[in-house]
Amino acid sequence: MFKHLGKHLILELWGCDRKALDDEEGIRDMLIKSVEACNATLICVKTHKFCPQGVTGVAVLAESHIAIHTYPEYGYAALDIFTCGEHTDPYKALDVLKEFLKPESWQIIDLKRGIMENMGTFELK
């Protein structure tokens, strides 16, 4: 029986709303709503607006983090949602992200972090 400590989603979002990708305050609000949606505990949010364009943001969680880096010139956003604990579900943040960024296409890589066997550590060979 395998168990894992965390769920880590890597998201590739293409064809996003270019104005949204360059909206620092909107990105900040999106991160906060994403934290609430996945039932995580927000510690703090930090964003930075680049010149001439783009935003980086991170929501630091008691259960890990949600991070974004945007490329408005390409309509692209790279996101990272990492949560730990049985009470969190990173997939529940997806609707919030899609509503704000409006991607035409996306790819999700779903990683299980801290895989354990029988409550002990499990080494992959």
Rank of each mutant, 00 (worst) to 15 (best):
residue 69 H to K: 01
residue 114 G to C: 10
residue 58 V to Q: 09
residue 100 F to D: 03
residue 103 P to D: 12
residue 62 A to G: 12
residue 113 R to H: 00
residue 76 Y to P: 07
residue 64 S to E: 05
residue 60 V to H: 10
residue 46 K to V: 15
residue 11 L to G: 08
residue 8 H to K: 09
residue 63 E to A: 01
residue 65 H to V: 10
residue 95 D to G: 11
residue 47 T to D: 06
residue 105 S to G: 09
residue 99 E to Q: 10
residue 101 L to C: 04
residue 107 Q to E: 13
residue 105 S to Y: 05
residue 13 L to F: 09
residue 13 L to V: 04
residue 106 W to S: 13
residue 123 E to Y: 15
residue 25 E to R: 15
residue 3 K to N: 13
residue 56 T to L: 04
residue 8 H to P: 07
residue 119 M to F: 14
residue 86 E to F: 09
residue 46 K to R: 06
residue 107 Q to I: 08
residue 57 G to C: 02
residue 47 T to Q: 09
residue 125 K to S: 02
residue 98 K to I: 15
residue 71 Y to A: 00
residue 77 A to I: 01
residue 99 E to A: 11
residue 49 K to F: 10
residue 109 I to A: 08
residue 79 L to N: 00
residue 76 Y to L: 12
residue 21 L to D: 08
residue 84 C to E: 13
residue 64 S to D: 04
residue 20 A to M: 05
residue 106 W to E: 15
residue 107 Q to L: 09
residue 97 L to M: 12
residue 111 L to N: 09
residue 68 I to C: 07
residue 115 I to K: 14
residue 106 W to M: 15
residue 111 L to C: 06
residue 97 L to C: 07
residue 96 V to T: 09
residue 111 L to P: 00
residue 107 Q to V: 10
residue 65 H to G: 06
residue 58 V to T: 14
residue 70 T to Q: 01
residue 67 A to E: 01
residue 67 A to G: 11
residue 22 D to W: 02
residue 67 A to P: 04
residue 37 A to E: 14
residue 26 G to P: 00
residue 75 G to T: 10
residue 19 K to Q: 13
residue 25 E to D: 10
residue 18 R to E: 15
residue 12 E to I: 06
residue 34 S to P: 03
residue 51 C to T: 03
residue 4 H to W: 14
residue 124 L to H: 03
residue 36 E to H: 04
residue 116 M to C: 09
residue 2 F to Q: 13
residue 79 L to E: 00
residue 117 E to C: 11
residue 15 G to P: 15
residue 110 D to C: 15
residue 4 H to Y: 14
residue 36 E to I: 05
residue 16 C to D: 13
residue 110 D to S: 15
residue 53 Q to S: 13
residue 110 D to F: 14
residue 5 L to F: 07
residue 24 E to R: 10
residue 96 V to F: 07
residue 105 S to F: 05
residue 38 C to V: 11
residue 110 D to G: 07
residue 70 T to V: 06
residue 71 Y to K: 00
residue 9 L to S: 11
residue 119 M to A: 14
residue 8 H to D: 13
residue 39 N to G: 01
residue 88 T to W: 00
residue 112 K to Q: 11
residue 26 G to I: 03
residue 66 I to R: 01
residue 29 D to V: 09
residue 100 F to K: 04
residue 49 K to H: 12
residue 119 M to C: 05
residue 19 K to R: 13
residue 97 L to H: 04
residue 66 I to V: 10
residue 20 A to V: 07
residue 99 E to N: 10
residue 34 S to A: 14
residue 40 A to G: 14
residue 44 C to P: 01
residue 75 G to I: 05
residue 109 I to K: 03
residue 92 K to Q: 11
residue 105 S to W: 05
residue 77 A to L: 02
residue 119 M to L: 14
residue 103 P to E: 12
residue 113 R to L: 00
residue 53 Q to V: 05
residue 112 K to E: 15
residue 65 H to M: 10
residue 82 F to C: 09
residue 80 D to K: 03
residue 14 W to M: 14
residue 122 F to S: 05
residue 76 Y to R: 08
